[in-house]
Amino acid sequence: MKSLKRYFPVFVMPTLVAFLIAFAVPFVLGLFLSFTEFRTVSDAQFVGFLNYLKIFTQDATFLNSLWFTVKFAVVSVITINFFAFIFALLLTRDVAGTKVFRTVFFMPNLIGGIVLGYIWQLIINGVLFRFGYSITSDATYGFWGLIILMNWQMIGYMMIIYIAGLSNIPTDIIEASKVDGAGWFTTLFKITIPSCMPSITRCLFLTITNSFKLFDQNLALTAGAPGGRTRMVALDIYETFYGRIGFEGIGQAKSVIFFLIVAAVSLTQLILTRRKEVEI
């Protein structure tokens, strides 16, 4: 134990330094900047809570984007996890070719968000053009476009996590339940789902945070058009910070609020689902 302590710096230092430089310092700096007015990060002047006040008085875009993001997150978290779980169930059966399908479903996750956004913009526009519309004709198209895109991208990833969870369930409990006369549905709801609660926790966490923080896909698919009605919070922050001179501090303040919201939502979710996890 003692010798282990001695080597502490060797093992932890590099990561710690990287963590400090890449996370802790920017985070603290960002927090500080949200209380200042600045043009570039090196010429900040303290203004107190003014930026936070301005978000709600001068700039209506934040609340609109937040509402759009919440709607998006709710729908996408439900659909992604629902489909990912179904796919995982199907692909853990003893059928030939499941490995191939797992790989195929996972692949969209390897493509970058910007590329995906443009690809789906082409596909969706290709369909809508036939009816004389485009993805920017109405915010609804953009909303469902984003949902489809995110599902397509995230389902494979979540599916892999669910598969890992499902294959960890000891077969003897399932056999036991069968002997006790449980049907397929009863087994699913009483044995399978409770046993893979850890996977569900993880998947919910990942989908919730990813849906809230979605940026590339949003930028490439609609860029907020029409009229900013498909602009999610991350894009709104980016546009406030970079697109508007004199609004840098406000953009920074928005991102602090955004951080608090995402942290609160995902921590609540973690606590709630953790409670449901059972030891096997």
Binding site: D138, P226, G227, G228, G243, R244
Partner: peptide, 21 residues
């Protein structure tokens, strides 16, 4: 006045041709 002014005007024009404004 600003880039944002132009941007908002552009969005409004898009809404106008699409019939939502």
């Amino acid at each position: 006045p600003s880039e944002n002014f132009k941007k908002e005007t552009g969005s409004a024009l898009l809404d106008y041709v699409q019939g939502s404004k």
